[in-house]
Amino acid sequence: MPLERGQHDLGGLPGGPIDLEEHELLPWHKMISAVFTVMRLKGELTIDELRRCIEDVPPDIYDGGYYERWTIALTDLMVEKRLITRDEVDSKMAELRAAREAAE
């Protein structure tokens, strides 16, 4: 019987001590949560679709942080659903990056 489990399916795996340090949420953590929540409540996508995309991100992204994997997964999902294209994401990031560098 294969016991393969997804990278998200953690129950019962060995783990180290829990890091109890509290961290402030960063503005972009709240922003990505808000963008997703509004789209979910408007019926553009579902939490189940986002979870599936989170489960499918590469392991380094999965391990790279909660909001990091959320953001990548939401990008994947929006592209998959033809809400945006990859090129639009690239162009917009380039535009925002240029604006940020100009401001520095």
Partner: peptide, 14 residues
Amino acid sequence: LTWPPGHRRIPQYI
């Protein structure tokens, strides 16, 4: 006790 691919909400341990 089955392991179908896809998005499942049933953890492996149960």
